[in-house]
Design a protein around this nucleic acid. Sequence first.
DNA 1: CTTTGTTATTCTCATACTGAGATTGTCTCA
DNA 2: TGAGACAATCTCAGTATGAGAATAACAAAG
Lengths: 244, 244
Amino acid sequence: MDESEFLAGYDPRAYPAVAVTVDVVALTIRGGGLRVLLIRRAEQPHAGLWALPGGFIRPGEDLPQAAARELAEETGLSDRVHIEQLASYGAPERDPRMRIVSISYLAFAPDLPDPRAGSDAADASWHPVDKLPELAFDHDRILAHGLERARGKLEYTPLATAFAGERFTISELRGVYETVWGVSLHAGNFHRKILSVPGFVESTGETTESGGARGGPRAKLYRAGDARLLHPALLRPAREEQIR
Amino acid sequence: MDESEFLAGYDPRAYPAVAVTVDVVALTIRGGGLRVLLIRRAEQPHAGLWALPGGFIRPGEDLPQAAARELAEETGLSDRVHIEQLASYGAPERDPRMRIVSISYLAFAPDLPDPRAGSDAADASWHPVDKLPELAFDHDRILAHGLERARGKLEYTPLATAFAGERFTISELRGVYETVWGVSLHAGNFHRKILSVPGFVESTGETTESGGARGGPRAKLYRAGDARLLHPALLRPAREEQIR
DNA sequence: CTTTGTTATTCTCATACTGAGATTGTCTCA
DNA sequence: TGAGACAATCTCAGTATGAGAATAACAAAG
């Protein structure tokens, strides 16, 4: 049955109202770890619990636009931020008050400033993803989905450069992978791999001003290349448990 | 801003109504090609145009449930069908009458019977994806997205077995890949690869009743294995144009 | 200023995976 | 009965990966 044919025969307002929101899983790397932006709920239900930033779509506003707006309301930033649709959630009882369908978005950004709590939120801050508080609604599921998507996209897209600054060293890029995947990678092999994937990074010809904090030579600086897909991909160490 | 805080301060019914539908991209292999289930619209707007099957979500009905129902209404089938969420579309003007947010689902099945047109549809049939009619709304975009997703999932999941029957030969499985990807694959290498990926297929110990229609020995029959991910993945021949 | 420890970068080497082509033997059809 | 089709297996070269080591530049402590 097509939606419009349905519309022709039925009045949608005869149905219980459905509300559509966007929720944003915004990830960044801070303090050596992967963090997600959460806001503390000021109102019932789940008042006092942390939740993903999000809100109703507005008339005339497209979905990605709504997600970018919600993110900007909390972080003040909208450019330099990669944002993409994640998934939608619409279980009838996911919000106790009414039927709410949520379109979730995934956002990545280099180290962002501290968020400012919106007028409607009691608090807003970046939380380490490995030490999360209890979340409101089904936001734990949405976040888990977002993390898994982010980890996967690191494999076959240059997404990691979106977590790094304008210019970065190979080691910094490796740090992104290690942080997001939660593993440690072989420095030599990683270096070889990054430089051998066409279009992943391009040299700036510059180096860091000084060596690392604890020694070592100055590292060459790179910027993101023009590849949209990594080929061959940079695969995570095999996770046997995930295969079956 | 969280959705519930918003709710506390604003009455969503004060906003123009938003309707939520599911649309299904149902793919199967028929007549040697990849085909998608389309229904012909009986009502305005876009009356007479072909469209993806879909319709409003019902109160108390979860999203995947709604998608399965819509598919079953057209095909009569609900088991043996793999179904997964694809993406959501909510551009303000995508339906001329009101704000409609559509959650799209992707379904795969072995060769299915001819669809029966729902009472609301003028016609329903399987269309070759490489020879499509003009589609209603933004359904061409949704379908393109679904095809790309299906092609990608063939690489790293055992999805191809969902297009094959209960038991299948390696050659039939290769035919699935060749049909969906639109390429021809090296039979020997494909054979080696399939048998070397743990859990992709398992032997039934049986063979086909006779050789191929034009000769050749009887082929061994396999069934789908227990792997959920293919490791290593079965990658498409490199598509340079898609990398940049 | 010298020593020690760290880190960037490059190499080596063994192993695994892939693409291309060829071989062997079974089976259908003319 | 012969020709062609096709399943299944094998070979070989090229490429990619994992692990470890070597080289050299640099910071910080003595």
